[in-house]
Simulated scan of single mutants.
Amino acid sequence: MHKIIVLLFFLTISYFSIAQNASDRIVKDSIKVDYNKQLKFNYKQLIIPTVFVSYGVIALESDQLKLFNSEIKEEVNEHIDQKITIDDFSQYTPAIAAISMEALGVKGKNSLKDKAIILSTSYIIMGLTVKSLKTATHEQRPDGSDFYSFPSGHTATAFMGAELLYQEYKDVSIWYGISGYLVAAGTGAFRIYNDRHWLNDVVAGAGIGILSTKAAYWLFPTINKLFTNNKSTTKKSAFIPFYNGKTVGFGLVATF
């Protein structure tokens, strides 16, 4: 168990070390809609999540990495007394924190509405990706309960929220972002501890979660322009995308 926690911890710290030196800058646009606080696309931002996902995919076929997975499973099973289901709740903690911080008087880069759109978009991207990969890979869970092990949806959800928390509040305090990633890493560790996922499932889930939120920020200006009505000064409406695990669609929000 110590090996798992240390490995996930260093994966998280490695991400922050590189992210701080990457070109993770803010776009300053002069168009009417305020996009001056959105994440600018840069290929360097793809490096870390791509490495995570690549490791997960390679481990599906690599005998050496499969052996590593099995060794971790054996070590966990030797020391586990009972399952701790905190990961069923901790997966949502970073995202909830990112949305609710404003209610506590801590303002992020974007308004509550914009954060909701970004979160919804990232959840759709993450949900569709995870569901598609689970169906395509048909990987059996360590506990043998089903064949939907790869990738870890809980971990993807946690890292998706952690990246949102990081992007919104890193300029207020870097510790908000770090705390979100520590919770996400802990979620991944408990998925392994509870014998629900292999290590590569968790690593791939982390990459998918991070990349989903980054993609949502990159897509936000386009989505907001397409689905926001700016023609009327007395009435405004917006379509917010949603994904509930089975259905994809859009919800209408209107003010009069």
Rank of each mutant, 00 (worst) to 15 (best):
211 L>T: 04
162 A>S: 13
96 I>P: 10
81 D>C: 09
26 I>N: 10
64 Q>T: 13
51 V>F: 15
63 D>E: 06
135 T>G: 05
74 E>W: 15
134 K>M: 01
251 G>V: 10
143 D>I: 06
136 A>C: 07
183 V>M: 06
49 P>R: 01
184 A>P: 06
38 Q>I: 15
32 K>W: 11
16 F>L: 04
217 Y>H: 10
230 N>P: 02
82 Q>F: 14
20 Q>R: 14
96 I>V: 15
92 Y>W: 12
250 F>L: 13
238 A>P: 00
140 Q>C: 05
10 F>S: 02
231 K>C: 03
164 L>V: 07
86 I>F: 09
181 Y>E: 00
22 A>G: 08
92 Y>R: 04
219 L>P: 10
227 F>G: 02
15 Y>W: 08
20 Q>T: 15
232 S>K: 07
16 F>I: 01
112 L>S: 05
15 Y>G: 11
80 I>G: 07
26 I>S: 11
36 N>S: 08
216 A>H: 04
65 L>Y: 06
189 A>T: 06
138 H>F: 12
111 S>K: 07
237 S>I: 01
17 S>C: 12
123 Y>C: 00
197 H>N: 02
184 A>E: 04
222 T>P: 03
25 R>A: 14
93 T>V: 15
64 Q>K: 15
19 A>N: 13
227 F>Q: 04
202 V>C: 03
124 I>P: 00
205 G>K: 01
242 F>Y: 14
243 Y>Q: 06
120 S>L: 02
2 H>V: 15
163 E>A: 09
232 S>Q: 09
6 V>Y: 13
186 G>Y: 03
129 T>V: 08
225 K>L: 13
121 T>A: 13
107 K>L: 07
174 I>G: 08
134 K>P: 01
220 F>V: 02
248 V>K: 08
196 R>C: 08
177 G>R: 02
35 Y>D: 07
76 V>T: 12
142 P>K: 00
115 K>E: 03
217 Y>P: 00
113 K>H: 10
65 L>W: 07
59 A>F: 07
157 T>P: 01
78 E>Q: 15
60 L>T: 09
87 D>W: 03
221 P>A: 10
157 T>N: 10
2 H>E: 15
160 M>R: 11
208 I>W: 03
46 L>T: 05
196 R>Y: 12
24 D>I: 13
239 F>Q: 09
84 I>V: 15
209 G>C: 05
31 I>K: 13
230 N>R: 09
225 K>P: 01
87 D>R: 05
200 N>T: 11
206 A>L: 07
209 G>H: 06
32 K>R: 13
26 I>E: 12
42 N>Q: 07
49 P>T: 06
10 F>H: 04
164 L>S: 05
217 Y>N: 08
114 D>E: 11
256 F>V: 11
246 K>N: 15
98 A>D: 08
243 Y>R: 06
22 A>E: 11
160 M>W: 08
97 A>N: 12
160 M>H: 09
154 H>I: 09
13 I>Q: 01
34 D>F: 08
11 L>Y: 03
211 L>D: 02
200 N>M: 11
47 I>R: 00
80 I>T: 14
